[in-house]
């Protein structure tokens, strides 16, 4: 079997020159993508004196850990926030995927009576929204969201974009006969979905899962609105707070007076900005291959026949 696969691959693959061209194009693009990140890492280890003297540079005059030391001063809060972010991302992605799959499966089924209505129900919200203040009021007063993990997860639970993308994945990878076959075998709707459809839709699910995990991990605005207790701060918000504080003080120092310039002068502001990026990106970049396993190699549709 393994042998056959290798053979097949060799027969049906692109020519060597074409592959070389692909590699060159992709390598160039990847360099473009990774060099800025390397740059960020370098700046995060650059001393503030060096930045003041020669600006942002790939070759700093002196290196230092001052930005990281500054972040480490957060102490336990930092680790607590790492945990919060991790928890929110995992739990949030789980619930998001559950509800998204259920919803988009309904939209995928052509024989679902209310399919059109529910498609429009989701899609319409992609275009029209009430704006920030009304949403805030509903979440706060109607749903009572504040100071809990739910207060971050619920407002971002669904995204019509993901639902529609998920539906499209179902459309392009699941033959309708499969559902008919399952129905004839007497499988219930839920059994069909969980036992048959989900296992063969892994690439799509992994992709949407990745996108929503990223969204949860990167979110700082919603925690800012609904969370006031530091023990629930996710990482991104904790770090964003540092960042916005610095930006605000630098911008408004003339209004706030001596105190502001006092705080600013103590901050390794430029390298700090970059160190924060590093602290946020590294964990999620490490988690990335986990999702990717399903996306790139994927499970082939072989199970249709089996």
């Amino acid at each position: 079997m393994a042998n056959a696969k290798v053979k097949k691959r060799r027969i049906n693959s692109i020519s060597v020159p074409a592959e070389i061209i692909c590699h060159i194009v992709l390598i160039l693009f990847c360099l473009l993508c990774i060099v800025p990140f390397v740059f960020v890492v370098i700046i995060s280890f650059t001393s503030q004196d060096s930045i003041r003297a020669i600006g942002y540079s790939f070759f700093p005059k002196t290196t230092s850990f001052e930005a990281y030391n500054y972040v480490m001063k957060l102490g336990d809060q930092l680790w607590r926030s790492y945990f919060n972010s991790f928890f929110i991302t995992v739990a949030g992605t789980f619930f998001t995927m559950l509800v998204t799959i259920l919803y988009s499966y309904g939209l995928y089924r052509k024989d679902f009576k209310f399919r059109k209505f529910f498609t429009f129900w989701a899609f319409f919200t992609m275009l029209f929204g009430g704006g920030l203040a009304p949403t805030y009021v509903v979440c706060k007063t109607v749903l009572g969201l504040s100071d809990s993990y739910w207060a971050v997860i619920i407002p971002m639970l669904l995204n019509p974009f993901n639902i529609i993308v998920m539906r499209t994945f179902f459309q392009s990878s699941i033959p309708e006969e499969l559902i008919d076959a399952a129905a004839i075998d007497g499988a219930g709707e839920y059994t069909t979905l969980f036992k048959i459809i989900i296992p063969i839709s892994k690439p799509g699910i992994a992709t949407v899962g990745l996108l929503s995990a990223l969204a949860y991990w990167n979110e700082w605005f919603i925690p800012m609105l609904y969370i006031r207790e530091a023990k629930f701060y996710p990482l991104q918000y904790l770090l964003m707070q540092m960042q916005t504080k610095v930006d605000f003080l630098v911008k408004n120092s003339s209004m706030i007076g001596a105190e502001a310039s006092n705080i600013v002068s103590d901050l390794p502001s430029d390298s700090l900005r970059m160190a924060l990026v590093v602290l946020i990106v590294v964990p999620i970049a490490c988690a990335y291959p986990f999702f990717q396993r399903y996306i790139v190699s994927g499970l082939t549709i072989g199970s249709v026949k089996g």
Partner: peptide
């Protein structure tokens, strides 16, 4: 007390006011 910070006060206080908190 609600300890607004330099970074979040502007956004949150205005929302709280508009929302009638």
């Amino acid at each position: 007390p609600i300890w607004g910070t330099w970074g979040d006060f502007d956004q949150n206080a205005v929302l709280a006011l508009q929302g009638g908190d």
